[in-house]
């Protein structure tokens, strides 16, 4: 199963078959999720309508951390088993991670201005997410810094594993330091401390974001493989 997908041609074929379905599912989930988030859910009695920012903010935050974890796992697979697709998966996921982390930071400060009265505070969670953003940028820069793409991929894989120490810090920063950012209210051991009317659109949006991430990842990986093939063909044509 694991090594079956090491064949790029087979992977491209499977990706092409999955893509229309996952793209359709993404669009459908976004329509349902946005309907629930904007129309079918109540405004918060304290935060008013600004609570709806959360339906974008929280899923992006989850994905931005999950994406780094994904990159770290792929990097470990690439370093240990020299799996060729793991390198490509890590390389393709990094710009998506940057995008989601940027969305988290921007939506967070848009929400913070009316709620906390400030665009930015040097709170533990905000700061650690900012560090995550720079880790992503470093990963991308290192991937592209070498003439030999293999070397870039391997160096970036080591960096991804080193930078992984930041993920638990982000996750638990709100529990370790008593700060302005509210603690986790969904992923708790007991029942979520959040009303079902708000939880439903949140989970729908999270599902939509996850599907979007998966679809974009497949598109980017296929494009990367096709790009490598085009380069190889051009080189062989030039000889």
């Amino acid at each position: 199963m694991f090594h079956r997908f090491a064949n790029p041609a087979r992977f491209s074929r499977i990706a092409t078959r999955i893509l229309p379905w996952s793209a359709a599912a993404t669009i459908a989930m976004f329509i349902i999720g946005i309907y629930y988030a904007l129309f079918a859910s109540p405004a918060d009695f304290q935060q008013g309508e600004t609570v709806r920012i959360m339906y974008v903010h929280v899923p992006s935050a989850w994905i931005s951390m999950a994406c780094y974890t994904f990159i770290a796992v792929m990097s470990a697979i690439a370093l240990i088993w020299k799996h060729p697709l793991a390198d490509i998966a890590a390389r393709s996921a990094a710009p998506l991670g940057v995008g989601f982390t940027l969305i988290v930071l921007i939506t967070g400060s848009l929400w913070g201005k009316p709620t906390w009265g400030t665009w930015w505070v040097w709170d533990a969670r905000l700061t650690s997410v900012l560090v995550l953003f720079f880790l992503y940028l470093g990963h991308i820069a290192l991937t592209n810094a070498f003439d030999n793409p293999q070397r870039g991929a391997r160096a970036a894989a080591v960096l991804a594993l080193v930078g992984f120490v930041n993920i638990p810090i982000i996750k638990f920063s709100v529990d370790w330091w008593n700060t302005l950012h509210q603690p986790a209210s969904v992923t708790r051991l007991d029942a979520p401390a959040i009303d079902p009317a708000i939880l439903t659109p949140l989970l729908l949006m999270a599902l939509a974001f996850t599907l979007y991430f998966f679809t974009m990842l497949l598109i980017r990986m296929r494009a990367d493989l096709n790009g490598a093939r085009a380069r190889a063909l051009r080189l062989s044509a030039a000889e």
């Binding site: 700061t127 560090v131 720079f134 880790l135 940028l137 470093g138 820069a141 290192l142 810094a145 070498f146 003439d147 070397r151 160096a155 080591v158 960096l159 080193v162 930078g163 930041n166 810090i169």
Partner: peptide, 26 residues
């Protein structure tokens, strides 16, 4: 770690700062 990672990279100095400074924050 950063010095070893950027060995042979283009624009090694700036890249090194980008890689290492986030890890120095703690």
């Amino acid at each position: 770690i950063g010095a070893a990672l950027t060995l042979g990279a283009r624009r090694g100095g700036v890249l090194l700062a980008l890689l290492i400074l986030p890890l120095y924050v703690p």
